[in-house]
Amino acid sequence: MTSLVPEKLKHGLAAGDAGRPARADWTIDQGWAAYTAEEHDIWRTLFNRQSALLPGRACTAFVDGMKALPIGPDQIPNFIELSEVLARHTGWEVVAVPGLVPDEVFFDHLANRRFPAGQFIRRRHELDYLEEPDVFHDVFGHVPMLMNPVIADYIQAYGKGGLRAKQLGVLDKLARVYWYTVEFGLVREPGGLRIYGSGIASSYTESVFALDDASPNRLGFDLERVMRTRYRIDDFQETYFVLDDLDDLLKLADIDFAPLYARVSAQRELEPGDVLDTDRVITRGTGSYHHGGKGV
């Protein structure tokens, strides 16, 4: 009997040898002209519903970046056109990759202000959840924030720090900083908490869960606390860390992480939903979603 469940396609590193491109830096041509009408329509569906949801949820930097870039509902953006605008503002460019890439390749791109974006787009049955980052996650979620000078400098510094962390064997600690900022970060603004993390901004359901649901914790950002905290890769986050201002990320770009790695490695690991007496609690979550009462 033929299965009615669509086969999951793997891309880039997740596809093994079949996903490795010819170039050592894992870049490929975007092949913009090869996108089908169906693929552009999937982009349109994702773009329109997310654009309708994010006003009052996304931070000012995200909104401003989106307005200034050639990103719209009608078609998947052309990386060359995106890069021309980014280069003028923050010196970044978008390079196409087949999917996930090796850590050292990813860090080298970031360290040189190249943002590797997945070239493929999810299929229609994957609108709400995709295991691998695709062009919608990478371009809609990440690229508008690269128009902000603070984020532009911070992500470049992360790329340089990632190469060092991998050599020191503490990459998991630094990866948590990226996860809880660039991917799933919240920031205070005059109107309330706002989204700046791409994993939230590109997700219809998590954009609601992160700000509105009673289940997750929302804690003030503390670097060492974040470095000790595991995260979820298969579901909504149990805890979101909140910056008082995006400019706080500039401090992280200048820190010598070596002493931090030593201190953090000597302390116990924290689970995603833990709340400590020393935490600056903005919202203490009920935990109901992750303990059986699935909400959103």
Rank of each mutant, 00 (worst) to 15 (best):
L186V: 06
H142D: 03
Q119G: 04
E189I: 11
D212S: 12
P116R: 15
Q156G: 04
R122E: 12
G185R: 05
E206D: 08
F120E: 01
G118L: 13
V177Y: 13
R164W: 08
D134I: 00
G197P: 10
N148H: 01
R194L: 01
V135D: 02
E132C: 05
W179F: 01
R123H: 15
G141A: 10
F209K: 08
V177D: 01
E131V: 12
H137Y: 14
T181W: 11
V187H: 00
F120I: 07
S198T: 09
S203Q: 03
K166A: 14
I155P: 01
T181M: 03
F140V: 07
E131D: 12
P133I: 10
A214T: 11
T205N: 14
Y178E: 11
V150S: 00
E126G: 01
I200H: 04
K160G: 04
P116W: 10
M145A: 06
P144S: 10
R122S: 06
G191A: 14
I195M: 11
V139N: 12
V135A: 08
Y204V: 03
V143S: 00
S203N: 11
F184Y: 15
E132V: 10
E126H: 09
A117T: 00
Y154L: 00
G169E: 12
R164D: 05
G141K: 08
G118T: 06
D138A: 06
A201H: 04
R122W: 06
W179K: 12
V187M: 09
M147V: 02
F120W: 11
D213G: 07
F136I: 00
A152C: 03
L186Q: 08
V143P: 02
V139M: 12
L146S: 04
W179L: 07
Y180F: 15
R164F: 03
E126K: 05
G191K: 15
K173A: 13
H125P: 10
V187Q: 00
P133V: 12
K166T: 10
N217Y: 13
S207A: 13
Y154R: 03
H125S: 11
A117P: 01
G159Y: 07
Y154H: 05
D138S: 07
Y204P: 04
G169V: 06
F136W: 13
V150R: 00
G197Q: 09
E131M: 09
G159Q: 09
A210D: 07
V150C: 01
V170P: 01
H137Q: 12
F209C: 02
Y129T: 01
G192V: 08
S202V: 06
N217S: 08
A157M: 09
R123Y: 07
R122A: 03
G169I: 14
M145Y: 05
L163V: 15
A214L: 07
A175D: 13
R176G: 02
R218N: 04
G141R: 12
S203G: 05
D138T: 09
G141F: 08
T205Q: 14
D213K: 14
Y158Q: 08
L146E: 09
I195L: 15
L163M: 15
T205L: 14
I200N: 04
Y204W: 12
R194Q: 07
V208E: 14
P144T: 15
V150D: 01
S215D: 14
T181D: 01
K173E: 10
Y158V: 13
A210F: 08
F184P: 00
E132G: 05
E132A: 11
Y129F: 07
F136N: 07
V139Q: 15
N148T: 02
G161R: 05
